[in-house]
Amino acid sequence: MLHSSRRLTVSLGVLFLAFAMCTAVAFGQAAPPATYSHDAYLDNQVTVNNCSAGEPVALNGTMHYSYQFTTDSSGVNHFAITAANNLSGVGQTTSTNYVASDSDDYSSNTADSSKDMTVQLSSDLKSQGSAPNMTLVQILHLTVDTSGSITAEVVSNTTNCGSSSN
């Protein structure tokens, strides 16, 4: 009887210890940084064609921007931004349909409370017909800050010959 109750006490002790450790780990985990996002819509934005075999394409669809930031102990802000497109297009010469869907990541460390950067997002512009694929290069002007504000603008859309899937 004494033996059994001692075993029970030890088991309870182990259980309590395990519970205490799990609780500490759970509470010790820092909350993940908030994600801020913004959707913008392209409405018949015509690409500038730099490809001899290509054609201007009128683009429609969504640009999705999201970012997170963390601040380290020395006050430096680390912004991590993702820009993604989900577009369809119509060739202005052949009426071929095109689609593009891709994303790129950008990050920056700065002592500033905001980040102002102009970046490239390149994606395959896949032909849904016999016209060749092209590469869509979008110049994006992005500003984000530590208040959760984001502004994004597609500065230009150009196409180059070829894509990875050609």
Binding site: Y106, S108, T110, A111, K115, D116, M117, T118, V119, Q120
Partner: peptide
């Protein structure tokens, strides 16, 4: 990439 910043360096 174009980085407009108040910092003396660009870290991207």
């Amino acid at each position: 990439t174009k980085d407009r910043t108040r910092d003396i360096a660009s870290n991207l």
